[in-house]
Structures are given as C-alpha cells and as structure tokens.
Nucleic acid binder design. Structure first.
Lengths: 241, 241
DNA sequence: GGAAGTTAAACGTCTGACGTATTGCCGTCA
DNA sequence: TGACGGCAATACGTCAGACGTTTAACTTCC
C-alpha cells in the first residue's frame, strides 16, 4: 500500500516530543493566567530539572514560546525568561505574514476585499462619530500629504486608512483590518496604477475627511463604500493582467 | 500615556542573537516565496555549516519557525525540515489564544461585540444568498440539536454560528470571525445564563435558518443584528456581575 | 513475488563546557 | 561622604560530541 504523506503536521503524532510537551504545558500556564505578564520563569537549568530533561530541550521549548511572543528572555544577572504581555502589534504582524502566505495560495482578492468592506465601512462611520479633534487634524495632514505627492510614488496610501481605523477607537478593529489592508496593498500595488487612479483615491479620501469633520456617519460610510468599490474594480483589473 | 520602559522585546537589541538571525533569514526566504511549501531545507548539520553555527543554534531557529507554522519536521530517513503550507485553522488557533490574552487585559467586551457585528451581520446576508442545500440542511440539524438540548448545558452554541460562517464561502471571514466568537464564548459563557436566554437564542437561530432557506438576505441580516444586540445586553449584564 | 530483517539518514535529547551580557557589590580615591 | 571603576556572580547564548529513536529504503530469504 502506498503511504500517503501527511501534508503538514496535522496528522496526530503518536508521541509529542519533549520540547513540544514542555512548550504546551508552559503555554497553558500562561494562557490560563496562572502565570501573569512579568512573572519570571525558573532558570533554564531549573526548568530542565523540574521537567526531567536537558537544558537544550528546555531551550527549544522556550524558543517556541518566545516566537509566539508569549515569553521573552533577557541576559545577565537578574535576567531570565519572563511572561510577556500581549502587544496588539504582535498579532497584527503575525496576521500580516500569515494572510500574505494564504493569499499566495488559496485566498482570493474577492474574499479579501469583501471582508475589508465589512470592516472599513462601519469603521468610517465610527470614525465620524468617535474621532477626536487631534485625530481629525492627523487625517487632514495625511490627505494633504497624499495630494502633495500626487503623480509620484504614493508611498503612503496606508496612512489614511490606518489613521481612520484608529479614529474608530476599537483596538480589535485595528488588529484585524490592518493586515487585510496590508496584504492587498503588498499584493497589488506594484506601482503600476495610472495617475487618474490616484487622483480619484485622493478625492475619495478628501471627501471622507470632510464627512468625518461634520461627524456625518452616513456620508462617511457611503463614501468608503464607493471608494472600496472603485478599488475592487482596479484590483480585479490588475489581477487579470 | 504612561508606558513602561520596555513592554517586551521592542527595545532595539544591539545584536540579534544567532538563532534569531537565522530564523529571520529563513523566514524571509519562505514568505518571499523563494522557498515553496513542500520544499525541504538542508539537514540540521548542513544548515549549521552553511550559517557557520552549531547545530543547537540551528535547532532553536527551526523551533522558532515551526512554532509559527512556517516549517514542520519529520524524522527518519528522508525526514527533515520542510516548508509548511499555511492552514487557515492554524491562523484561527493563533488568533484565538492571542485575542484571549488580549481580552484578559485591555480588550473590552464592547470592542469584541462591535467587530463581531460588523462581520456576522454581512455574513448572515451572504449565507442567505450563497448557501448550498447541503449547508442549509446542516444548519437545520444544528438548530434542531440546540432545541433538543434546551434546558441542559448547551454545549454547542457555536455550531450554528460557525456553520453560518462557512455558508458565506469566504475563508478569510471564517478565519477572523471564529476566534472573536470563541473568545466571547469562553469569557462569558460560564453556564450561568438563564433558561429563557437560551430559548430566545434558539428562536433567533431558527428564524435565521428560515430566512436563509428563502434566500432572504435582508431578513437574515436583520435577525442577526437583533440577535447580536440581545447577546450584547446579556454579555454586558454578565460582565457587570 | 512478498514478507521479514537490516541499514542508514535525519531528527530528538543529553551532557558538559565555555563565551557573553548584565547587575550588584565593594573598595578606592577625590 | 559620594562617585567612579573593577570584580564577581548569575543566567542566557553557543558549541561540540555522543547516543537514542524514528522511518523509509534496501536486502534477503522463503
């Protein structure tokens, strides 16, 4: 019988290796809250003795946890391994690379744009009602900068959208939306968009800023919707080529 | 904005340790696509020689990558380390633990529910238009099961929502919505909800299934909206206690 | 030709050692 | 007295080598 190779680590492995088991145990201590951010784990030799394994094994388990940003280590006396407190930017970064890979195989532009609409249209509405004056000023600055570099590279089209997300005052919204935005940008903005495209983008952004200025949620939402529909067409166009 | 000195690894470290540098280099090879899923990396000793480091160091770098599900290893002859292909479930799992930790410190119920509404209301609309007959049948089954265990534990309230997400036929939507749902559930459903609450939930679900049966997106969306509003009140109520 | 045993490649783990960063102590000196 | 500078201790970082374990391929024998 021909053995089918498991695509990746999903098939249940008969025995989990020692470093995995140790990582699992420590992880569950952390996510369950038995270990709080800032807590210091025993030193590597102590952990090794506690689990009955060598230091190499402990270190591999710790590397595993630290790459998930659950712990971090520092050297020197009073150094050691500490439980990390979660940073939303960590999650954003992970999502960005993961979704980037997914989009390279399996994830369609349409799916990305659909979810982006679900999030950014309400975000624009929220921004209109929740924004502070400082944030409004920052939005204006971003749009002006976009206008200034009209015709050139447009290096920072993300400025506006990300600022708008912060205006909504919802950390989770930022965390999930920003990676989607980045993936779309990285995948399809290879600098080969016509100049009129960017002019229209600037106009859209400007209109939204004014609606947000007036705290006009309905208009802001509608403008975002139209804006994203235009983007969809442009992206699909680029995708065909 | 009182912030601690260095929350965690963000302060620039003068020198990145060897295993981090190696992990970084390999990671960028993978995300840039120079290494494709299924490709086999050189053996650990070979990598060590190539990078000019010891095998332990290479292994720590590989552990780092494997915990991010970028590579997986298998033993035996013809074993080795291979570039993994991304599995959406991996992302879902990571998001679930990360958001769980975030919700333990900093993320409010309100934020979670707001984003959930943004995603699930359109999802219900999509489900109504995009569902297949098989999926509709599965939804019916889930609701019937809920009704059957009315008054008992309600172990599987997630069945309905997750099935509904799959009906939308948008992988990204599933990936981001499911963790939000799970976090809310784990955090607030400690089995201390009154029986009438569950009865109402079942009614809501049933109404949605019927709307989805008729491919009535407007009604499905509205029902989901009302459903989530009711949940919001219930969650906030529980949160106060 | 098929089943059972052998082999070899690669990962998994351990041990011990040495390097290096960091901190705190402590003594010296102005 | 107080500040500066060096020493020591601690804990992570890295290396080298050895041995165990897993697994697929090869070999042998019936």
């Amino acid at each position: 019988m021909s053995k089918q190779v498991v695509p990746h680590g999903l098939g249940v492995t008969p025995v989990r290796s020692a470093y995995q088991q140790i990582a699992d145990q420590l992880r569950s201590l952390i996510v369950s809250g038995e270990l709080s951010p800032g807590d210091r784990l025993p030193s590597e030799p102590e952990l090794g003795q506690a689990f009955g394994v060598g230091r190499s094994t402990v270190r591999e388990a710790l590397r595993s946890l630290s790459s998930q940003h659950l712990v971090y280590t520092s050297r020197g006396v009073n150094g050691g391994t500490f439980v990390a407190d979660v940073d939303p930017r960590t999650i954003t970064a992970y999502l960005e690379t993961s979704l980037g890979l997914l989009s390279a195989s399996g994830l369609t532009v349409d799916e990305l744009l659909t979810v982006r609409e679900m999030l950014e249209v309400p975000a624009a509405r929220l921004a209109a009602t929740e924004r502070t004056d400082d944030e409004l000023a920052a939005l204006r600055t971003a749009v002006e900068q976009e206008n200034a570099e009209s015709g050139t590279q447009h290096e920072h089209p993300q400025g506006f959208h990300i600022l708008l997300l912060t205006c909504a005052h919802n950390g989770l919204l930022e965390v999930v939306t920003q990676p989607i935005f980045s993936v779309l940008k990285n995948r399809f903005l290879r600098g080969n968009a016509p100049s009129e495209f960017w002019d229209q983008v600037c106009l859209d952004h400007q209109g939204m800023v004014e609606a947000i200025d007036r705290r006009d949620a309905d208009t802001a939402g509608e403008l975002m919707q139209h804006h994203l529909h235009r983007l969809r067409e442009a992206y699909l166009e680029m995708d065909r080529r």
